[in-house]
């Protein structure tokens, strides 16, 4: 884990040396999605809540930045604070209904609410509707950090990623995290020792949504563009796949999964070594790979790392 982070930290100088700014961009994208996947892993992996609507918070975070910027407010502290706060509020609203259910109901409800937000984004013409809108100015941090500098932005994302990896590790192993895992493993016994699962689950759901909201704010700055597509249900599916591919309920899993999926997409779409029919229909192969991973590689990429068993 530490080795991976050190490797990521070394990327900007190396990329500058090789004059390959593209990789900086790609890896920044990977890390942003890793943050989103970490937040999903918290409820999906440790809490056993199969949220099929996590892209909602990605969209809310992005729209918080975009809408404020549209009205001339470029202060990053405010933008990102609102992104986190709004995501937490929406997560509390969706969670208060969905967390009471479980299994298939939970999956369908989270999916449906995200779809509702997606249609909301599509139908608000003022903020671009279907076409989305450009972010004219990236979030401003009063001269402290300049997001227009690729390396500075990279290290900011890197710092947030490292912080979130540490925080989620601490959270999972805290009393709160242990109760959360207990509700997944055996709800009846958790109740029997006098703990009500609902507040723990809801709190985890809200924390997870807030974390993902920050990832959304980062993503809006990364692309300088936002559309309702950020909340598309396929995006939620991709986030889930990242968690599974990386290794569910492991600390390093979300990072590995995000890297695995995005690099795989990049390879299938862009590598000139591969024949043209692969580029044109890369989703076909991605679909097959997805099915195979789910059927045969349950432990994910983290299972390949030494000493990285599912920690529950």
């Amino acid at each position: 884990m530490v080795a991976i982070l050190l490797l990521l930290a070394a990327v900007p100088p190396v990329a500058a040396l090789l004059h390959e700014p593209f990789y900086l961009d790609l890896l920044r994208r990977v890390m942003i999605f890793a943050i989103a996947a970490i937040s999903l892993n918290l409820i999906l992996g440790y809490g056993g809540m199969v949220s099929f609507g996590h892209a909602a918070y990605l969209g809310i975070g992005a729209y918080a930045v975009g809408v404020l910027s549209h009205h001339g407010i470029d202060n990053g502290w405010l933008q990102w604070g609102i992104a986190i706060g709004a995501s937490a509020l929406v997560a509390a609203a969706i969670g208060s209904i969905s967390v009471r259910t479980s299994g298939i109901y939970f999956i369908m409800i989270t999916l449906a609410f995200t779809q509702m937000l997606y249609y909301l984004g599509v139908s608000i013409a003022k903020y671009g509707g279907d076409d989305g809108m450009r972010l004219n100015v990236r979030s401003q941090f009063s001269g402290l950090i300049d997001l227009n500098d690729p390396a500075e932005f990279y290290y900011l994302v890197f710092a947030i990623l490292s912080l979130f990896l540490y925080l989620s590790h601490r959270l999972v192993n805290s009393r709160f995290g242990l109760v959360l895992q207990a509700t997944r493993l055996n709800e009846a016994r958790t109740r029997a020792i006098g703990l009500s699962p609902y507040p723990y689950r809801l709190a985890a759901f809200v924390i997870s949504g807030a974390m993902c909201g920050l990832a959304g704010a980062l993503l809006a700055n990364q692309t300088s563009f936002l559309t309702p597509e950020f909340m598309n249900w396929t995006r939620s599916g991709e986030l889930m796949f990242m968690v599974i591919l990386g290794g569910i309920a492991t600390t390093a899993g979300p990072l590995l999964g995000a890297a695995g999926l995005l690099l795989l997409e990049d390879v299938l779409q862009g590598w000139s070594v591969l024949p043209k029919w692969v580029h044109e229909h890369w989703q076909l192969y991605l679909g097959v790979i997805l099915v195979l991973v789910v059927l045969y590689a349950k432990r994910g990429l983290a299972g390949l790392l030494p000493g990285n068993e599912r920690d529950d």
């Binding site: 599916g237 796949f241 229909h281 989703q283 679909g287 997805l290």
Partner: peptide
Amino acid sequence: DHLDQVLATFGLILFFNELIAI
């Protein structure tokens, strides 16, 4: 479990949509 079913059938959707596009 439901998680595996959701993901595997999600993969099938990608596969079918692309197959139809081909």
